[in-house]
């Protein structure tokens, strides 16, 4: 699943490890999510959304729905 995590992190000038600290997960988890190798659980996705003050769908892009959002 594509996401904007890398951009959002860069806007705050955080390292992957620092973002991991904010989310209470490992640097490897952040790296795997950023590179699309791993899709986070719903609780972790909500945590990211709260951290960046965005909605989940503003961070993650579900390519399977053809980009149509209600």
């Amino acid at each position: 699943m594509k996401n904007r995590l890398k951009v959002l992190r860069a806007m705050r000038n955080w390292s992957q490890a620092e973002l991991g600290d904010h989310l209470d997960v490992s640097r490897q988890a952040v790296n795997a999510i950023e590179t699309g190798k791993y899709d986070p659980s719903l609780p972790l996705a909500f945590k990211m959304a709260r951290l960046f003050g965005l909605r989940i769908e503003e961070i993650f892009d579900d390519e399977s729905d053809g980009g149509q959002h209600g």
Binding site: V7, A10, N13, S15, Q16, A17, E18, D21, R27
Partner: peptide
């Protein structure tokens, strides 16, 4: 600056 600026800082 989107690359991970990690590891130079000991946290």
């Amino acid at each position: 600056n989107m690359a991970d600026p990690q590891d130079s800082r000991r946290r």
